[in-house]
Amino acid sequence: MTKVFTRPKSLTDKPFHYCPGCTHGIVHRLVAEAIDELDIRERTIGVAPVGCAVFAYEYFNCDMQEAAHGRAPAVATGIKRVLPDRVVFTYQGDGDLAAIGTAEIVHAATRGENITVIFINNAIYGMTGGQMAPTTLIGQVTTTTPYGRDPGKAGYPIRMSEMLATLEGVAYIERVSIHDIKHINQAKRAIKKAFETQLAGKGFSMVEVLSTCPTNWGMTPVEALKWLERNMIPCYPLGVKKEVK
């Protein structure tokens, strides 16, 4: 019998703890597949965030460091400067990267740190139970915006990819989505390209992945995917934001 589907080598056999319908699992798999295909697992070091993906170090089958909330780009910088020939990536959510860790991501990017950042944007804090994220949409209801996000009180969604794309140290930034197969395939290509950018020594690379949080959005997984497509993509346009050839 031919095996047509198998676990990537770059994932451990530990079952994910994520909620039903959560898209972290998909993105983990895409990252692992990219690492496998580039045959870099033995020299890859990942940095896990604080947030739902806090246990990412249990899933990625490579050496890992667990960073404090928002500090993953600083930790990755420390690793990469000591081990410049290794591949270093961070995996961060929107609270981690776009709120508490804003300084760290901006300065890692502007230094042109030769690292790869996987940025999960699901417009909400998942692990702490559905609070407003910096990327929460206008009008979106969360536990800390119970009347919907009001820009007069809580400001506007932040577009990290566009912001970081203005920095000279950045080599590659693309925003992708995982709401259907076509987009998942595109996300995979982008993630692989981000690692290739690092391997070529071009500088900072990031892939922002629009993702869902059915639990805290209060939707079924299918509704959540549809909601992402209808509401998030208009606010967060997909595509390459910067690419240094």
Binding site: R71, A74, G78, R81, V82, A103, R111
Partner: peptide
């Protein structure tokens, strides 16, 4: 060796974390 002027003390100590975790004297 390598010197970085970090964006804050917070970042600096976390760079120390990463570098120490990678086995360096830092």
């Amino acid at each position: 060796g390598c010197f970085i002027q970090a964006e804050s003390e917070v970042s600096a100590i976390n760079m120390v974390y990463g570098a120490a975790g990678a086995g360096a004297r830092v």
